[in-house]
Each structure stands twice: as structure tokens, then as C-alpha cells.
């Protein structure tokens, strides 16, 4: 996936770097920032595209799974 550069303050960068080094959950500061932003932007399940949901349900019914 294509990436773009964003600048953040050194202070925040250092704080995140500390967390990243203490835990095994993130391999870089970038990954931490991306995770936080993804969580902020994540849609609630109720808001998920209705058309896609209908397609899945129809498929499952035609498969005999629902």
C-alpha cells in the first residue's frame, strides 16, 4: 500500500518510541500511529455497507449455510 509522510512533534515521537520498545506489539512508531488512527477511523459494525452485507447473506443462503 502506498505511503505518505506526515510530520509529528519529536516529543510525541519519543513517547511512542518508548512504548514500542517496551512492548512486542508494534514493530515501529509508524505502525503504532497507523494502528491508533485506524481505530479512531474504524466504522461501527452497524455502519458497514449494507449492499455488501446483503450480498454475503444471499450467498450464505444460496450455499445452504443460513
Amino acid at each position: 500500500m502506498a505511503k505518505v509522510k506526515i510530520e509529528i512533534s519529536e516529543e510525541i515521537y519519543r513517547k511512542i518510541k518508548d512504548i514500542v520498545e517496551k512492548t512486542e506489539e508494534f514493530s515501529s512508531v509508524e505502525e503504532y500511529v497507523e494502528f491508533v488512527l485506524e481505530e479512531v477511523l474504524k466504522e461501527d459494525e452497524e455502519e458497514i455497507n449494507e449492499e455488501g452485507e446483503e450480498k454475503i447473506k444471499d450467498r450464505l443462503k444460496d450455499l445452504g449455510y443460513l
Binding site: 506489539e25 514493530s27 505502525e31 474504524k42 459494525e45 452497524e46 458497514i48 452485507e53 447473506k57 450464505l60
Partner: peptide, 26 residues
């Protein structure tokens, strides 16, 4: 779906847990 009587298909966003491939990638 939380707080409703509706059900939605299970998606990659339906569970808050890293997978084997997430951990391997790190």
C-alpha cells in the same frame, strides 16, 4: 451486533486480536 437484535457477517474487523500473520509480520 452490540445492543441490537441484528446479526452481521463475521469480518476481519469483528475481532480485536492479532493473527499469526500479524505477529509474523512484526
Amino acid at each position: 451486533i452490540d445492543g441490537s437484535y441484528e446479526f452481521t457477517s463475521v469480518k476481519s474487523t469483528s475481532y480485536d486480536s492479532d493473527t499469526i500473520w500479524d505477529i509474523l509480520g512484526k
